[in-house]
């Protein structure tokens, strides 16, 4: 693993139930880098994040995380899950569980713990609803609480699975700006999956673009190009930039390829 790298994924392939899902994925992240993991539904974003977390073992290749000697080296915000509205738990309780939820025993009141939780809530602008029930918070508020839960131990790497799904445009911009700021403040590398790259364009230092189980990675300008994406998809793709947005469209393609792209919300959603 090279110096300064927090995560190195080397030639990693993953199969689930005998089906090959990811092939020869290769990229690395440096400390404090902000990276978008972009791909359509079913392209393997969640699978890749779960592999990095160690929930799934790669069938070949390797995933290495430099913990920097810290125990809590990875924070994780899973793809949207329903928080039970009847769960008797305040936002601050969930954040506190991020601090010591793996410890045994009931939590005893401690000023140090309380201060850490308050500071973390403040960092994600969640102080206002810290004492409300998590199940009753809005999607954007829940995202902030989950981010605080994942970050309170100051991990070196933060993985977020589709944290922008189901947020309106203003909340999306707010969460992206928040993550960008926190990654710099805490020197945490962020790997965030999304099916639309546009909200991330200004924040991303690096992109990992997934299609057909393979990945292209590098700076956005180097990856989001006609030649690179055409090679990744295996048929001609046009990358069009209009009004500061990127649109990925299939030009002429075989029927099934055309169908694949047409059914792919990344592309459809952005065709004006």
């Amino acid at each position: 693993m090279a110096r300064g790298e927090v995560l190195a994924v080397r030639q990693a392939s993953v199969s689930l139930s005998g089906r090959s899902i990811l092939k020869d994925i290769d990229f690395s992240l440096e400390a404090g880098e902000f990276c978008g993991l972009i791909g359509a539904n079913g392209s393997g974003k969640t699978t890749l994040l779960r592999t990095i977390l160690g929930f799934i073992a790669p069938s070949s290749g390797s995933v290495t995380i430099d913990s920097g000697g810290k125990l809590a080296s990875v924070g994780y915000v899973p793809q949207k899950f329903a928080l039970d509205p009847y769960m008797p738990m305040r936002a601050r309780d969930l954040v506190a569980l991020g601090l010591d939820g793996n410890r045994l025993g009931v939590p005893l009141p401690s000023p140090g713990r309380r201060r850490k939780v308050d500071e973390m809530l403040e960092s994600v602008d969640a102080t206002r609803f810290a004492d409300q029930r998590i199940g009753n918070l809005s999607g954007g508020q829940q995202q902030r609480v989950l981010i605080a839960h994942a970050l309170i131990r100051r991990p070196r790497l933060l993985l977020l699975d589709e944290p922008l799904a189901n947020l309106d445009m203003r909340s999306v911009a707010g969460v992206v700006a928040l993550l960008r700021r926190l990654s710099q403040e805490f020197q945490t590398s962020v790997l965030l999956s999304a099916h639309d790259m546009n909200p991330l364009l200004s924040a991303m230092d690096r992109i990992v673009y997934l299609a057909h189980g393979r990945a292209a990675s590098g700076s956005t300008d180097a990856v989001v190009r006609t030649e690179v994406l055409s090679q990744l998809y295996g048929y001609h793709i046009d990358v069009v930039r209009v009004h500061g947005r990127v649109i990925v469209v299939a030009a002429e393609a075989e029927d099934d390829a055309q169908a694949a792209v047409a059914h792919d919300p990344v592309h459809v959603a952005q065709v004006p």
Partner: peptide, 14 residues
């Protein structure tokens, strides 16, 4: 078991 059980009850994945 209070804390780990609580966390796992909120979300097994977390």
């Amino acid at each position: 078991l209070f804390r780990p059980l609580l966390l796992s009850s909120v979300s097994p994945e977390l």
